[in-house]
Design a binder for these strands. Structure first.
Lengths: 229, 229, 229, 229
DNA sequence: AATGAATGAGAGTTCATTCAT
DNA sequence: GATGAATGAACTCTCATTCAT
C-alpha cells in the first residue's frame, strides 16, 4: 500500500556542491582579546547565516558552522548558548538590516504610493544582495518561531507608522486604524508570497520580480481589484 | 558573551505535556482485513497530521506516530515508504479537502466580491475545523517543498479560474491576465498572513479572524488602499 | 582519524540489476496436494539457491525467496523451520549433485592421474553449469558451518576411497593412510583455491580454468614441485 | 514437511556465554591526548578482531565492539568511518603481521623445501598466537572481499618471489613461470585447507597441526603424490 | 495449506552538548 | 579562551517470525 512513486527524497536539495566561502574572518590576527572575540562571534554568525541560507535550518549543524568559521566545535559554546540560540539570533539581526535598507529605499519617494513601490522594489533588491535572507525568513516560523513573531512585530510597527502618517496626511481615506493594520498584513504577505511566485519561475532562493509585477501590485493596492471605477 | 537570557528552547513547545488524543481509530474491531488496513492507514495518517500540527514536521517521529496510532513501529512501513513519504502526503490530501470546502463556501456568493468574502471566511472556518492544517501548510515549504509547490499550483489555478470568469463577466476591469495572477498571489498571501496576524492575539494553531478584519480585507481588494476615491 | 579513503562500501555487489528468473515452478497447476507441496518446496529451494548465488547468504531474505518462488511470505514456514534451516540445506543437496557429477567424470579415466585430472576438470564444468554453487560453497563456512563440515566430510571420504584404491593398486607409493588424507585435503583446497585464482582474472562467480592450469596442477601432484627428478 | 531436527541455529555459536576479555586497554590512564587516542583506536581494533574471531563478521556489531573496548557507541565514529570500514581494516593489518611473521620463520631455512616447511609451520604457530586470525581470514571473501583480494595478492606475490628465486637457483625445474603461479595457489590453498582439517579434530578457531602432517605435506610437494619414483 | 499484515528487537549512524586539557 | 574527543540519546529503517483469517 505504500506509495512507490514520485516523492522520494522530495526534501531539501543536497547542496553538497555549493561552494563554501573561505573562512569568514581571520580572527587569528586580531590585535587584542576583545577584538578577537568579536571576530569569532562574527565568523560564527555569518557562517550560520550562510549555511541556513544554503541548506535550511534543519541541516545546519554545529560541526558545519564551526568548520566554516574556522574554529573548533567547542568554541561555539563560548559564544552561543546552544544551537537554537544562534538560530534564534539570525532573523532578528538580518531582519533589522533588511528593514533599515528597505526604509532607506522607501524614504526616497514623495507619496505613499511611491514609497510603497520603492519599499516593495527595495525588498527584492535586498534579497539579491543577501541571498540567504529569504530562506532564513521563510523557514523561521518553523525553526525560530519566537524570533519570527518578533520580526513580524517589527515589520508591522514600521508599516503602521508609515501608514498612519499617510492617514494624517490625508493620503489614505476611509480606513480606521485597525483596518490599516489589516492592510499592513496584507502588504507584508504580498511581498513574501510574491517571492514564492518568483520562485515558481526561477531559483528558489533568488526571487526575481519583473517590473510589471510591481506595477500590477501597485495598481492593486491603489485602486483595488474589483470595484475599481 | 553568550546570551543567557530568554531564548532557551524558544522553538517548539516542549510538548511532552500536550494531551495526546486517544488512539485514533479502534482498528482492532475491524470487520475484515481490508477494513482493518483502511483503518490503520487512516490512523497513521491522522496521527501524523495531528502531531505535525502540534509539534511541527521536524519533531514528528515514527515512534510518535505509531504510538498515537496504536500500532507497532514496523507497521508504519507497511503503509508508507518512509517518514518523508507520509509527510509528503499530508498537505496534498488536506489541501484538497481545504480547497473543496472553501470552494463550496465561495460558490454561495453571487458577485466576485461576495464569493471572495465567503471563500476568505471559509478558509478560517476550515482552520477551526482542522486546527492542524495551518501548521502543516506553513511548514510545508521547508519540509515537503514538492508537495507545497503542488499545493500552491492548485490554489493558484483555482483562483485564476475564479478571477478570469469575473473578467469575462466584466466584474473586473483594467487588469490583464498576468496582472490577475499577481492579484491571485497577493490574495493567497493575505489569507496565510492574516492567519499569522490572528496568531498574534490567540493561539498559534487556532487563528480566529474577527468580522471587521474580513471587512477591511474586502474593502482593500475592492477599492484599494490608497487611491480610493 | 577515520580513513576517508577507498574502502567505502567495499562489500558485496549491489546486484539489483541481476535479471530475476520467472517464478520457478507453476505449482498452481499441480494435480494433487502432494504434488503441489513438492513443487512449492522445490520452488523455494531453487529460489534460495539462486539468490544466495547472486547476492550471498547475508542478503538472502525470506521476502526475496518467497517473491521469487511466487508464494506468500508465510508459506515459507510451512516448508522450512527458519531462514537458517533453508540456508543449511543448500550445500548438502547441491554438494551431493556436485560429487555425483564429478564422480561420473572421474570414472571415465583409467589411471589415478587421469581420474584426478578428469575430476578436476569436471569440478569447473559443474561450476559452469551451476553458477550459484561456487558462492554457496565459498560462503558456507561463515553462514552454514555445520553444513560445510558435513560437505567437507563427504568430499574427504570420497577422495579417500579413491586414493586408497589407488594405493592398493600400487599406483600410489610411499604414503601411508593418514598421509593420504593430508594429500586429499591439499587437493580439495587446490580446487577451491584455483577457483579464486580464476576469479582474479574473470568474473567472481564464473571461474574459468585454462587448460595449462590443469596441466600444471597435474604435473605438481604427480611429480612434486621441488624434488622432481 | 519442515525439518524439525538438528539444524536449529546451526550457525555461529550462541556466544552469549563466551567469556569476554577485560576491557582491552585502560586508555583512561593515558598520559596525554595523543596517547589516549592511540589507545582507544587500538582498543576498538582489537575488540573488533576478537569479536570477529569469536562470532564472525556478521554478528559483529558496533554495540559489541564499543562495549568491549569500553567506550561509548558514538566514540567509534571518531576512529572509523563505518562498521564496514573497520571490518575492511582487519585483514590487511593482521594479514601483514602474519606475512611478516611467516617470512621471518621461512628465512631461517636454507633450501626451498626447508623454507617452505618453516613457513608452513610458522603459519600455524601464528594461528596459535592470534587465534582470531583464522576466522578473520576465512570469512573475508564474504564480508570484506576487496580486502581479501588485496591479501591474496600480497601472499601470491610473496610466494612468487620466493619460488622464482628457487627457479633461478635451479632448485625448481620443469616449471615455467605461470605454472609456478599455479603451484603458489595450490600451496596457499593447502595451508588454509589443512587449517580446516585440523578444525575437524580440535576447536574451530584453534587449528593444531601435528608434525606428521607437515611431513606429509612436504613429501607431497617435493615428490608429488602419484608418479613419485 | 496458503496468506500477508503486524510485530518489535535490533541494527548503523548522527549530532548537540560536555569537559579535561 | 580555545580545543576537539567522548558521550549517549534518539533517530529511521529492516526483517525474521507469528498468527488470525
Amino acid at each position: 500500500m505504500p506509495r512507490k512513486s514520485s516523492s522520494k527524497a522530495t526534501k531539501a536539495p543536497p547542496a553538497s556542491s555549493i561552494p563554501e566561502k573561505a573562512q569568514v574572518a581571520n580572527w587569528r590576527n586580531a590585535e587584542n582579546r576583545n577584538e578577537r572575540g568579536r571576530l569569532i562571534h562574527e565568523a560564527l554568525f555569518t557562517a550560520a547565516a550562510e549555511i541556513v541560507g544554503e541548506r535550511g535550518y534543519e541541516d545546519t549543524s554545529i560541526t558545519l558552522i564551526t568548520q566554516r568559521a574556522g574554529v573548533a566545535q567547542g568554541t561555539f559554546y563560548n559564544y552561543f548558548e546552544s544551537r537554537q540560540d544562534i538560530l534564534d539570533q539570525l532573523l532578528p539581526r538580518l531582519g533589522k538590516e533588511m528593514l533599515s535598507y528597505v526604509g532607506q529605499c522607501s524614504r526616497q519617494g514623495n507619496t505613499v504610493l511611491e514609497r510603497e513601490e520603492l519599499g516593495f522594489r527595495g525588498f527584492y533588491t535586498f534579497l539579491k544582495i543577501h541571498p540567504h535572507f529569504f530562506r532564513i525568513l521563510n523557514e523561521a516560523p518553523s525553526f525560530a518561531p519566537r524570533a519570527y513573531q518578533a520580526h513580524i512585530e517589527l515589520v508591522r510597527s514600521g508599516y503602521m507608522r508609515f501608514l498612519k502618517r499617510a492617514m494624517e496626511n490625508g493620503e489614505i481615506k476611509g480606513f480606521d486604524e485597525r483596518e490599516i493594520e489589516v492592510a499592513a498584513f496584507v502588504m507584508m504577505g504580498a511581498r513574501l508570497y510574491l517571492g514564492h511566485y518568483a520562485a515558481r519561475v526561477g531559483d528558489d532562493n533568488d526571487p526575481d520580480i519583473p517590473d510589471w509585477v510591481t506595477q500590477a501590485y501597485c495598481k492593486l493596492i491603489s485602486h483595488g481589484l474589483i470595484g475599481g471605477a
